[in-house]
């Protein structure tokens, strides 16, 4: 038993995926599906399928029905809910950013601003950050950092800034426009940062309105994040 667990965590990471696909198959086929049916529809060798099923039953992700041949999802599967929602969130964020990057010639980054710190959820691979350390530590240096500062020093009952800018601070001739993403309560949670040549940053309100639809979609996806 111990040996088998070591296999699962260390030497056979594929087994974890197989185990997840067994769970998915039980969910797809519905309660009462048998070991033989599961091994056939997943194309797993029978001994492997039986071993995975017994491990999942042992940890109560699956239960055997009273006839002992049929399986159903166990109560513990509810623990996987957070995991699958997180995967779903990442997939949707990826889809929105891919569409933006196809449309905009320039770097499109998604910054995480929760707690008043700058982090990155997704960095454009084609336009790497010029100085990641400085961006996350010196809030005055970057557009997203300036967004955080503006939020911090905003007097009560005033409209929040629709965007923040920096030009030439990090790389001469280039700059960035950061557009905020807010949660349902109006708190600043993230920002989309557009890294562009200084010449294309002349009309920031137009850039911000160009992104309005994407910002709304990202806001709703991030809202559903666990």
């Amino acid at each position: 038993m111990t040996q088998r667990r070591a296999d699962l965590t260390g030497r056979q990471p594929g087994a974890v995926l197989s185990a997840l696909s067994v769970l998915e198959e039980v969910a797809r086929a519905g309660p009462g599906v048998t070991a033989r049916q599961i091994s056939a529809s997943l194309g797993l060798p029978r001994a492997t399928a039986y071993r995975l099923l017994n491990l999942l039953v042992q940890d109560e992700y699956l239960v055997r029905l009273p006839d002992l041949s049929g399986f159903a999802l166990g109560r513990k599967v509810a623990l996987l809910a957070g995991l699958s929602v997180r995967q779903e969130t990442e997939r949707e964020i990826g889809a929105v950013l891919t569409a933006m990057r196809a449309r905009i010639r320039g770097g499109v980054h998604l910054a995480d601003l929760r707690g008043g710190n700058v982090g990155f959820l997704d960095v454009d691979e084609d336009f790497p950050l010029s100085d990641p350390d400085r961006i996350t530590s010196d809030l005055k240096a970057s557009a997203v950092g300036r967004l955080v500062l503006a939020e911090r020093h905003r007097p009560a009952n005033t409209e929040p800034a629709p965007y923040a800018m920096q030009v030439g601070v990090l790389v001469p001739g280039f700059g960035c426009c950061a557009v905020p993403i807010r949660d349902g309560a109006g708190r600043l949670v993230a920002a989309v940062a557009l890294a562009l040549p200084a010449t294309r940053l002349a009309d920031p309100p137009a850039l911000a309105s160009l992104l309005a639809d994407d910002i709304r979609r990202l806001a709703s996806v991030l809202e559903s994040r666990p």
């Binding site: 997840l20 769970l23 998915e24 198959e25 969910a27 797809r28 519905g30 309660p31 009462g32 029905l65 009273p66 006839d67 159903a72 999802l73 599967v77 509810a78 996987l80 809910a81 699958s84 929602v85 995967q87 779903e88």
Partner: peptide, 19 residues
């Protein structure tokens, strides 16, 4: 993981399981 997500959102009814 679609079927699993659906099952978590709306657990299927299981016959033949006693209370």
């Amino acid at each position: 993981m679609r079927a699993l997500n659906r099952a978590i959102d709306a657990p299927p009814a299981v016959d033949a399981v006693p209370a």
